[in-house]
Computed example of a mutant assay.
Amino acid sequence: MIGGGEGSQIGPAHRLGSGLDGLFEFTAGALDHRPEAGRSYGQQLGLAADRSYGDWREMLEGESAREDRVDLVTVATPNSTHFEITKAYLEAGFHVLCEKPMTMTVDEGEQIVRIAQENKRICAVNYGYTGYSLVRHMRAMVARGDLGKIRLVNAEFAHGHHADAADADNPRVRWRYDPAQAGVSAQFADCGIHALHMASFVTGQEVTKLSADIVSCIASRELEDDAMVNFRMDGGTVGRLWTSSIAIGRQHGLSIQVFGEKGGLRWSQEQPNQLYWMPLNQRLQIIERGETNLSPEADRATRVTIGHAEGMPLAFANIYKDLAEAIRAEKETRPTDPAADLYPRATDGLRSMAAVVAVAKSGAAGGEWVDARPPMFR
């Protein structure tokens, strides 16, 4: 692991998720931008002294020289460093799981896709919410035709945790709305791309064009804290997306609804054990996580018996479980289990970055429809 040090929000979720199934062992780390703090914290977590590194370059050199070098590197550093670190480790022959956003620009994203392909290495991006069992069951239901042709997908990721204008100078909040540190987008790049990726993951379709209305409801912010995005997908599906950080009363706020010719589905991350399914002209049904006769994708992603909650670290664990299967399949020169071949790829990270740029462009142009595809996929 690179980053994810003491006090990190995301580091513990990765360490819990990666070790949950006993498929990965946390073996090496460069956990802090302060070398001594990183070495010390790594050893507190059980890393050997010679594998608790001061920075990512030292770790790259040290692990590259070992016969028992790590199989997978998780990049959980600040956004602006993702490209440089991911690129270096892919070129050195390591598999990488990078936190989102994968890069800060579309050009960087295209470079990562090409480097991963040329070096035949896995580059995954942590859209971890796709690890939830019932999200995977939604995808399976859509793929097997239970809903018929998909007409409309509606996705939300709206919370109210940045609604206090008095937080304008809080450094943990301020940087997110500063173009010098966050890039061209704030709320959409932070949360909206999770909802957009979820829409693509569940429907099996990619976004082709979009129109965005973006606003800074707190006037001191240079970047948006609320966005409404209309989009079109390559399978003909119409998309609607709302993301906000000023929606007081909303806590996490990730949800998705999918409407097809033969039925509709609804799921919320805050109530992840229930999937609401309404077949056309029938009664509403509640599908429970862990019940019998679900899809292989859902069964594989379920560990706890029905009626008990499975949360975000277990969703992350499913991404790691997918990656372990992919790495093992490569070593054993066999096909990957189809029910496990669901981890988000570098291409997903690239498409997300292209959508971020498209939202910023459309918003600045008063909602003009713009191409949301990266150049290499046009």
Rank of each mutant, 00 (worst) to 15 (best):
P335T: 03
G349H: 15
P344F: 05
E325K: 04
T333N: 12
E325V: 11
A339K: 05
P338N: 00
E325G: 03
T333R: 10
A326G: 00
P335C: 03
P335H: 05
L323S: 11
E330G: 04
P344N: 05
I327F: 09
K321H: 09
R334S: 01
L350N: 05
E325H: 09
A339L: 05
R345D: 00
A324P: 03
K331E: 04
K331V: 01
A324V: 01
D337A: 12
P344I: 04
K321S: 05
R351W: 08
R345G: 00
L342E: 05
I327H: 04
A340Y: 13
R345W: 07
G349W: 13
P335M: 08
A326T: 11
I327C: 09
Y343T: 06
I327E: 03
L342T: 11
A339P: 01
D322T: 02
P335D: 07
G349F: 15
P344W: 05
R351E: 05
Y343Q: 09
P344S: 11
A324K: 02
T333H: 15
E332M: 10
D341S: 13
E325I: 06
A339T: 06
L342R: 12
K331I: 04
T333F: 14
K321R: 15
E330W: 07
R345S: 14
P344G: 07
K321C: 00
G349D: 12
K321T: 04
R328H: 09
Y343I: 04
E332Y: 03
A346K: 09
T336P: 09
E325R: 06
P338Y: 04
R328N: 07
P344Q: 06
D322S: 01
R328Y: 08
R328W: 09
D348A: 15
P338S: 00
L350Y: 05
D341V: 01
R345E: 08
D337M: 10
A346C: 13
R345Q: 01
L323K: 11
A346G: 15
D337E: 13
A329Q: 05
D337H: 10
E332K: 10
D348K: 12
A340E: 10
Y343H: 08
A340N: 08
L342S: 08
L342M: 13
Y343M: 10
D322W: 01
D322Q: 00
E332A: 11
L323T: 10
R351M: 10
A340I: 08
D322R: 06
R334N: 01
A339N: 02
G349A: 13
E332T: 06
P344R: 06
D348G: 11
R351D: 07
A329N: 07
T333K: 15
R334Q: 05
D341C: 01
E330H: 06
A340F: 14
T333D: 14
D348T: 13
K331R: 15
P344M: 01
E332D: 11
D337T: 09
D341M: 01
E325D: 11
P344L: 06
R334F: 03
T347N: 11
K331Y: 00
E330D: 11
L350M: 06
T333C: 10
G349S: 14
R345I: 00
L350W: 03
L323Y: 09
K321G: 03
I327Q: 03
P344H: 07
P335L: 07
T336K: 15
E332L: 13
T336Y: 13
E325P: 08
L350T: 07
A326R: 14
R351Q: 11
E332G: 04
G349V: 13
